[in-house]
Amino acid sequence: MSGIALSRLAQERKAWRKDHPFGFVAVPTKNPDGTMNLMNWECAIPGKKGTPWEGGLFKLRMLFKDDYPSSPPKCKFEPPLFHPNVYPSGTVCLSILEEDKDWRPAITIKQILLGIQELLNEPNIQDPAQAEAYTIYCQNRVEYEKRVRAQAKKFAPS
């Protein structure tokens, strides 16, 4: 494992614990031996107030490669969400998460999670990743928002 990646992720964890947006979660997972795995984080993004996503808490896994922060983490909703920019596998399609697009090593975990929260309610229809959600979003916004509200209710924190 890269010392650069681990040191950056340790800084990220410290900064997150000191200050993070209300309702968001970002925690490194534990290895079988109980030690912390900084390369694999369990996160959760709350649906934004005043949107059909409100009330939901959407679980996301963030996986970092050894060359982080040169390369972005892979962000994957578990379980996958109904959304035009979420692949059926759950992987998020967002330009700041793509090395050859808008990724920059200075982007923080907090910025990534806030960017994904923004994307939930403002899909990028130029870059669809899920045919069904994309089609319904474009053709029947009322039905799309109904499905999103049902999903938010399903993923409401207990």
Rank of each mutant, 00 (worst) to 15 (best):
C43I: 01
P105H: 01
P72Q: 09
V92H: 01
K49N: 10
P69S: 02
A133H: 05
I107F: 10
R13S: 02
I136G: 02
H20L: 03
G90Q: 04
N124T: 02
S89P: 11
I116M: 14
C138Y: 03
K101M: 08
W16Q: 04
R61W: 10
Y137I: 06
R104T: 08
Q130Y: 06
E122R: 10
W53K: 04
I109S: 05
R8T: 08
Y87M: 08
I136N: 07
L6Q: 11
T29I: 11
P72A: 13
Y134P: 05
P73Q: 03
Y87N: 02
D67K: 07
P69K: 06
G50K: 14
D19Y: 03
I125H: 02
P79L: 12
S158C: 08
P157Q: 14
P21M: 06
T135S: 11
R147I: 08
V142Y: 14
K14H: 05
R13C: 01
H20W: 01
A150T: 11
T91K: 05
Y134R: 01
K153C: 09
K18H: 08
T135P: 05
K49D: 09
K154F: 04
A15Y: 15
I125E: 06
E98G: 15
R147K: 13
A156E: 13
W41G: 01
P128A: 13
F82H: 02
T29D: 10
R13A: 02
R147E: 10
I4M: 13
K49V: 15
E143H: 10
G115F: 00
G34F: 04
K110Y: 05
E118H: 12
S71F: 06
K65Y: 09
N85A: 08
E99R: 10
Q111D: 12
P123L: 04
A44H: 07
R147V: 11
G50V: 08
S70W: 09
P72Y: 00
L63T: 08
A26E: 02
I45G: 04
F77I: 02
P80Y: 14
P72M: 00
N37R: 13
D66V: 09
Y137T: 09
N85I: 03
K14I: 09
G50D: 06
F77Y: 03
D67R: 08
G47R: 01
I45H: 01
T29V: 07
L60F: 15
K76Y: 15
I107D: 11
H83P: 02
Q130N: 13
V25E: 02
K65G: 11
E99K: 11
I4R: 09
C93F: 00
R141T: 12
P32F: 06
Y68N: 04
C138E: 15
I96L: 06
L113C: 11
F58I: 05
S7R: 08
K59S: 12
Y68W: 07
A15E: 12
T35Y: 05
F22Q: 03
N31I: 09
Q126K: 12
E143V: 13
E12L: 05
K18T: 07
C138W: 08
V25D: 10
P52S: 13
K49S: 04
V148P: 05
S95W: 07
H20A: 00
W103A: 01
P46G: 07
N124M: 04
H83G: 03
M39I: 07
D19I: 04
I96D: 11
I96S: 02
E122W: 09
L94Q: 03
Q11D: 12
V25F: 11
R17D: 00
C93R: 02
I136L: 10
E118W: 08
E118P: 04
K146P: 00
E118I: 10
F155T: 05
L114I: 12
D127F: 00
S89L: 10
P52N: 15
T91L: 14
I107N: 14
F22T: 01
G34R: 09
K74E: 15
P79W: 14
F22R: 00
K18W: 02
P80G: 13
G23A: 07
C75K: 03
T51H: 07
A106R: 00
R149T: 09
Q130E: 08
W16F: 11
C43E: 08
L119H: 07
A129E: 01
L113I: 12
W16E: 03
T35H: 06
E122I: 11
F77N: 03
E42Q: 09
E78W: 11
D19G: 10
L120S: 03
R61T: 13
W16M: 02
L81E: 00
T51C: 13
T135K: 06
D100V: 15
T108N: 14
N40F: 07
F24A: 02
Q11R: 13
Q126F: 09
F58P: 06
L60E: 03
P84H: 00
A131E: 09
T29M: 11
K74C: 15
R104D: 06
P52W: 11
E118L: 10
I96G: 06
K65N: 13
W53F: 05
D19R: 04
S89W: 09
Y68I: 02
V142W: 10
P79T: 13
N40T: 09
A131M: 06
S71I: 08
S7H: 07
Y87K: 03
K48W: 01
D67I: 05
T29N: 15
F24T: 04
E54S: 12
P128Q: 02
I96C: 03
P84K: 00
Q111Y: 15
P46W: 02
F82K: 06
G50Q: 10
S95N: 14
R149F: 09
P52T: 13
K76R: 14
V142E: 13
P32L: 12
E12K: 02
D102Y: 09
G50S: 12
T29C: 13
P128H: 02
L63K: 13
I107S: 10
K18D: 04
E118G: 09
T108M: 14
T35E: 00
V148M: 02
R149G: 09
P21R: 00
Q11S: 11
I125M: 09
T135Q: 12
S70V: 09
P32G: 11
K74G: 15
I4K: 06
D102C: 11
K59T: 12
N37I: 09
K14N: 07
E118F: 15
F77R: 03
D33H: 00
K154Y: 09
S89V: 06
Y87F: 14
K65P: 11
K30N: 06
A133G: 07
D100I: 15
F64E: 06
V27E: 04
C43L: 04
Y134V: 08
G56D: 01
S89R: 05
Q111V: 13
P157L: 09
R17Q: 03
A106H: 01
L81A: 06
P128D: 04
C43D: 07
A152Y: 04
Y87G: 03
P32W: 12
V25P: 04
L97S: 12
R61A: 10
R13E: 03
E99A: 12
I136C: 09
C43W: 06
T51R: 03
K30V: 10
T108F: 15
I109G: 05
L97D: 08
Q139F: 07
Y144W: 06
D33N: 05
L97C: 15
G34E: 09
F155K: 06
Q117I: 07
E42L: 05
I116T: 14
R149W: 10
L63D: 14
K30D: 06
N40D: 14
D19Q: 00
N37C: 15
